[in-house]
């Protein structure tokens, strides 16, 4: 029973991070009809910034400071998104979809090396925060307390996003733009601004995913490319452009992955 509970928690942990990444990807596609191949690297960027701040810049501080600085990676990726959308992606909305994929693939290569340039080829860790939380006993096993925080952030992000998109004026504008960009534009919506905001929000989510998971793992090169493929699986299950789909898809992938690791373990 305890073992099952641990598996359940692990699945939810993984699903939370996946939801944040895939939800951002799906949101960006839903509003702007762009599949951002660099999205995984945006997530990795968030992880790197947080790991760098917590692990190096304020390494001597204590837990509350670290916790307060945890979202810094998400904020950094949001700024990155706000810069990238108008400069690199805007010229591609009117052109064939192939060019968008190519441009974001180029962006993927650039971001991968920018991270190598800034933070070197070695893994960057922020494990002090993870360890400072300690662990709780679940039946006969112990489980890291920090993982509950990750699950909590994932759940909070899902609720917050739902409220944001279905209960605020901005959400109405966002949904209107995604359904019919021309009509929204004719009704006085500043489509360019909505696009910047949607892309920034999507990047913020991915960055948040990277930021909250990095203390329990570490930031490594190539983590973005792997995450992208997994979030593709999530959005293919849930339907590209649907946030609810991303949530369901992330939970399914989280459970399937945990089951796969448990029952189809790698041959030693």
């Amino acid at each position: 029973m305890d073992v099952l509970l641990i598996h359940l928690l692990n699945s939810l942990l993984y699903a939370s991070v996946l939801f944040l990444i895939a939800g951002g990807l799906s949101l960006i596609y839903g509003v702007m009809r762009i599949v951002n191949l660099a999205h995984g690297n945006v997530y990795a960027f968030g992880a790197y910034v947080t790991a760098w701040v917590i692990g190096s810049v304020v390494a001597g501080a204590s837990m509350p400071v670290w916790l307060a600085l945890l979202p810094v990676g998400a904020v950094a990726t949001a700024i990155l998104g706000a810069v990238l959308e108008p400069t690199l992606l805007r010229p591609f909305y009117k052109r064939a979809e192939e060019y968008q994929l190519l441009c974001t693939f180029g962006l993927l290569m650039i971001l991968e090396d920018v991270m190598r340039l800034f933070w070197g080829p070695y893994p960057l860790s922020a494990s002090a925060l993870f360890e400072s939380f300690g662990s709780v006993t679940v039946g006969e096993s112990i489980y890291p307390t920090y993982n509950f925080l990750v699950i909590g952030v994932g759940a909070a992000a899902a609720i917050f996003l739902w409220a944001f998109i279905y209960r605020t004026k901005f959400g109405v504008v966002l949904r209107a733009t995604s359904q019919n960009m021309r009509m929204a534009s004719a009704l006085g919506v500043n489509v360019n601004r909505v696009y910047v905001e949607a892309f920034t929000l999507g990047c913020f989510m991915a960055g948040l995913g990277g930021a909250i998971i990095v203390p329990s793992q570490s930031a490594v090169l190539g983590m973005g490319v792997d995450a992208l493929v997994l979030s593709f699986i999530v959005v293919v299950i849930g339907g590209l452009g649907s946030l609810e789909g991303a949530l369901v898809g992330a939970i399914i992938v989280g459970f399937v992955r945990e089951a796969g690791i448990t029952w189809f373990a790698e041959r030693p």
Binding site: G106, L108, I110, E112, D113, R116, L117
Partner: peptide, 20 residues
């Protein structure tokens, strides 16, 4: 350079932007 991906990525972005 070890940052060849950066170089090639910049070439690709420049290519699709200016010489499709």
């Amino acid at each position: 350079t070890v940052y060849w991906q950066l170089l090639l990525g910049a070439v690709l972005v420049g290519l699709v932007l200016s010489l499709p």
